[in-house]
């Protein structure tokens, strides 16, 4: 790949441009009721409208004190602000499962979760599964059984698979297929994913 494309100068310039243009779009979209308000109130109200909200949460064991725009999803917070890009954006509408993370141990779609609502919660992403260089048993099982081809859905599949076993929903092949139905694999690695989950469960290591 041409290195110039990814130089910091280019990417930060692009990011600044996006920031400026999105701010302009945001102003243009400010509701008329707010713009009609009394002079002094206008600035306050617009500020209130775009107010960032302080949120404290824990991600992969690390405490974060963040300031978040209300419309930012947990997925965008992880990827864009915290650069935890292991969690993938697939459909961005809760239909594919690529963004699956755990909140307080429960699997959810990060794309439909507002980050601002997650104060005090413990979030685990694919980056938080391995113990240093030692892979999580589910990660090992996916490699052993070739549970992926392109790999894009894999972080979501693995996060979902870990929860699936913990919930007690991996008792049979049918059970696994039903309870993994929220994770779509367009390469069609389903049979190997089922094998990987059975193997990880059988391994009996702590998931």
């Amino acid at each position: 790949m041409d290195k110039k494309v990814t130089t910091p100068i280019h990417s930060s310039a692009r990011r600044n441009f996006l920031k400026q243009s999105s701010a302009m779009v945001a102003l243009a979209l400010a509701p008329p009721t707010i713009l009609k308000a009394g002079d002094k109130k206008v600035e306050d109200q617009i500020a209130g409208y775009f107010e960032k909200v302080p949120v404290k949460l824990e991600i992969n064991g690390k405490a974060h004190a963040l300031s978040i725009e209300p419309r930012v999803t947990l997925l965008d917070l992880l990827r864009e602000q915290l650069h935890l890009t292991g969690t993938k954006k697939g459909c961005d509408h809760g239909q594919c499962g690529a963004c699956t993370v755990h909140i307080n141990g429960k699997r959810v779609n990060a794309c439909l979760t507002l980050a601002v609502m997650q104060g005090g919660n413990k979030i685990t992403t694919i980056e938080g599964l391995a113990n240093g260089d030692e892979l999580h048993p589910m990660q090992e099982a996916f490699i052993k059984h070739d549970g992926f081809q392109c790999g894009y859905c894999t972080p979501g599949q693995i996060m979902s698979a870990v929860a699936c076993v913990k919930e007690g929903h991996a008792e049979s092949d049918d059970d696994i297929r039903e309870y993994m139905s929220g994770n779509i694999c367009r390469c069609g690695c389903y049979t190997n994913i089922v094998d990987a989950i059975k193997d990880a469960k059988k391994g009996g290591k702590s998931l």
Binding site: R71, D92, H93, N109, L112, T113, L114
Partner: peptide
Amino acid sequence: ASAQFIAGGTNLVDLMKKGVTSPQRIVD
């Protein structure tokens, strides 16, 4: 009248992304 409740968000956030609904205030 432009405010809406939010709980799980699985439907509302989706509708807001699509521009089907655009509440000015969200009450968690």
